[in-house]
Write a protein that binds this DNA or RNA. Structure first.
Length: 222
DNA sequence: GCGACAG
DNA sequence: ATCTTGTCGC
């Protein structure tokens, strides 16, 4: 079995604990190229379609796109999500013409039981800054941020702030932002807001989601 | 033991 | 995540 992608939960847990010690949740990168990462699955869940869409920053022009098909070999276990979806996302990322200097991942970063959600996990493996953006909390509690775009409320877990509930669009439920790696909380929130335009989810993630679903449709036909 | 639980 | 149509609302 691949040392970076064990297929046994026990081995995954051990690796996650080791990776968590290498997570650096601070920094304020000024990226020029940002990649949004997301995945879609076949109806039976046996096949995964990872997508990576590259955007210029701060201009937010799409400048690249890639996807990869992967056999899913790890079950969905809340705290071990990275071991299920990580392989497909990395495969897509490797197919990009240029390497991003920041990745936006659909899922949590430090807002995780061991402060090592998929965003932190991939950031450490790749050695590049990363940010996690999720639709709902895995751990912790957050107050309701004010209704206007840009408002944010801290996510508390075990007595510390591990992320933020961020209102990327007025009057719409917030997204949960947490540092992945080499990015601090304030910078993570600022960057996600700078990449959100009129929709709840930031542009790179919207594009990645669309790319993954489209890839599945094209593969499903042939 | 019971309930919670990213995508 | 995925299975699924129409429908209410801006």
């Amino acid at each position: 079995m691949h040392p970076l992608w064990p297929d046994k939960p026990a081995a995954a847990l051990a690796l996650q604990t080791r990776l968590s010690q290498r997570v650096v949740a601070r920094g304020a990168p000024a990226p020029a190229l940002v990649a949004g990462l997301d995945a879609a699955y076949s109806r039976n869940g046996a096949t995964g379609y990872g997508a990576a869409v590259l955007f210029s920053f701060p201009g937010l022009e799409q400048v690249g796109e890639a996807w990869a098909v992967c056999e899913v070999r790890f079950p969905y276990i809340p705290r071990l999500f990275a071991f299920r979806e990580g392989p497909a996302l990395c495969a897509a990322l490797e197919r990009l013409d240029r390497a991003p200097d920041l990745i936006l991942v659909h899922g949590h970063g430090t807002a995780h039981p061991r402060r090592c959600g998929i965003a932190s996990h991939l950031g450490v493996l790749l050695g590049i800054p990363s940010i996690g953006v999720a639709d709902r909390l895995l751990v912790g509690e957050a107050g309701e941020p004010a209704a206007e775009r840009g408002a944010a409320a801290p996510v508390f877990f075990e007595g510390e702030v591990v992320g933020w509930a961020v209102r990327t669009r007025a009057g719409v439920r917030p997204v949960y932002v947490s540092p992945g790696h080499l990015v601090g909380q304030a910078a993570a929130v600022e960057l996600v807001l700078a990449m959100s335009r009129g929709y709840r989810r930031p542009e790179p993630l919207r594009a990645a989601h669309h790319c993954a679903v489209t890839a599945r449709a094209e593969m499903t036909k042939r």
